[in-house]
Measured scan of single mutants.
Amino acid sequence: GFTKEQQRLGIPKDPRQWTETHVRDWVMWAVNEFSLKGVDFQKFCMNGAALCALGKDCFLELAPDFVGDILWEHLEILQKE
Rank of each mutant, 00 (worst) to 15 (best):
A30H: 09
L54G: 07
G38P: 08
W29S: 05
V27Q: 02
E5V: 11
P15K: 02
N32T: 12
F44L: 08
K13F: 08
L60N: 09
D25H: 15
W18F: 00
M28T: 15
R24A: 10
L51G: 00
K37N: 12
D65S: 14
L62P: 00
C52E: 03
A30D: 03
E20Q: 13
L36Q: 03
T21K: 13
T21Q: 14
V31D: 04
F2D: 08
L71K: 00
L54M: 13
R8V: 09
L54S: 04
E73V: 03
G10P: 06
A30Y: 07
V67R: 08
Q42T: 11
Q42I: 03
D14K: 03
W26A: 01
L78R: 03
K56H: 12
D65C: 11
W29C: 05
M46H: 04
K37R: 10
F59K: 01
P12C: 06
D65G: 14
L71A: 00
F41I: 14
H22M: 08
F34A: 04
Q7A: 11
A49W: 06
D69L: 11
G68W: 03
E76L: 10
C58P: 11
L71E: 01
C45G: 14
G68S: 09
V27T: 05
W26V: 01
Q6G: 09
E5M: 13
D57Q: 10
A49F: 05
L54H: 03
G1K: 15
K43T: 06
L54W: 03
L9P: 05
D40L: 04
K13C: 12
N32H: 15
A63V: 14
F41S: 12
P15E: 00
R24M: 14
G55Q: 10
E76G: 12
F44Q: 00
L9C: 10
K4I: 15
L78I: 10
D25F: 09
R24Q: 12
W18V: 01
C52M: 10
C58Q: 15
L78Q: 07
E5F: 10
Q6D: 06
Q42D: 12
V67Y: 05
A63Q: 06
M28N: 15
L36H: 03
F44M: 06
T3P: 08
D65T: 15
R24T: 10
I70W: 05
G48K: 01
G68M: 01
R16I: 12
P12G: 04
T19D: 11
M28V: 14
P15C: 06
V39G: 02
D69P: 14
P12N: 04
L9Y: 08
G55R: 12
V67T: 11
Q7S: 11
A53L: 07
C45L: 10
E76Q: 12
Q42Y: 06
E61R: 12
A53W: 03
